[in-house]
Amino acid sequence: MLSVKSLSRSFGGVAAVSDVSFDVKKGHVHAVIGPNGAGKTTLFNLISGVYEPDAGSIHLDGQDISGCAPETLAKKGMSRTFQNLQVCMNMTAIENVMLGAHLHQNQSLWAGVLGLTKSADKRLQEEAVALMTYVGVGEYTDAHATQLSFGVLKRLEIARALASKPRLLLLDEPAAGLNDSETHAMTTLIRRIAEGGITVLLVEHDMKMVMGISDHIVVLDQGRKLAEGNALTVSRNPEVIAAYLGTEE
């Protein structure tokens, strides 16, 4: 579904991502892991159109999307969440989710004149409520975003991403800042999303989560791909262990 080939990006002469290649299979959960500063978020920003690559290519369903703007990628079926929450704090929870569906709204002046927007708005609200229930925050529909806990806001951001009806969902550290019970619930949610047919690519530091839900794992270290494979293969790789834990002289 997604193919990354020889991707590179430097900042001020320092290579943040260097010659990274991997493939993402449709319907699977793929994870990108690595020590702090390994280049994980930069890689995500390249894939999602926040940055343009210096070299290499990114293909979605065989189509070259290298350097495409985020809004273009959203129309092609790619959505993402962020390590630092990007929730609109001046809106209610349901308004945040409804915002994610704007790409699928086709409301014109004549639609307003004929009163067709009322039925569309009602349908949009119903879909937003269903998504909030799906991610486990249905009881906060009318709550203002400022009233919600960090864990609820994390799920709310995922609901908003799902409102755009993506085929590929990128999750940047979905478990960051969550306690054990919230992390367990987030793990269950991600598994459910993948089982529902949405391909998931995530960056995450919580190794228990990664090893428990990932079909395939890519390991980065200092901007380069260090290893890849299933959870068992990666967890037993000596280079991966050394990158995380260090080695004796």
Results as ranks from 00 to 15, higher is better:
L131A: 00
V113T: 12
D180W: 14
T72V: 13
T92S: 12
T133C: 14
V203F: 08
D19Q: 07
A185R: 14
A31R: 02
L103Y: 15
Q86A: 14
R191C: 12
D64S: 07
L220V: 00
E173P: 06
T141D: 12
V203D: 10
T81R: 00
D61S: 15
V129H: 06
L131G: 01
A55T: 10
E182L: 01
G177P: 01
L73S: 03
D121P: 07
V113K: 08
R192A: 15
P238R: 02
S235H: 10
Q86L: 14
Y140L: 13
F22Y: 09
V20H: 00
G27Y: 04
A145N: 01
A16H: 05
T233V: 15
S108N: 12
C88K: 13
C88G: 15
V29N: 00
D54Y: 04
I213Q: 04
H205A: 07
Y51D: 06
K25L: 13
S164I: 08
A227E: 08
G151Q: 05
G12Y: 09
A15T: 12
I193C: 04
K165F: 09
N45E: 04
V135Q: 05
H184Q: 13
T133W: 10
V14I: 10
A243W: 09
L201N: 01
N230M: 14
I190F: 06
I190Y: 02
L170W: 01
V210P: 00
G138Q: 05
E71F: 13
H30Y: 06
T42V: 00
L226R: 01
H28N: 14
A130R: 12
I47H: 04
A93C: 09
A16G: 05
L168Q: 02
M132F: 02
T199E: 07
W110G: 15
E157L: 00
F82G: 03
E127T: 06
G27E: 00
E71V: 10
P53T: 03
A120G: 12
L46K: 01
Y51S: 03
V219S: 09
G77R: 02
G212R: 03
F11E: 01
K165T: 09
A176S: 02
A93M: 05
A120N: 12
L245N: 12
M132W: 03
A130W: 09
R167V: 13
Y51C: 06
H102L: 11
Q107D: 15
L170V: 00
A128V: 11
A145S: 07
Q83R: 09
Q125F: 13
V135N: 05
E248S: 11
T41W: 06
L202Q: 10
S10D: 11
G136S: 03
Q86I: 15
S3I: 10
D23H: 08
L178K: 00
S164G: 11
N96Q: 08
D172G: 05
T187F: 07
V203P: 10
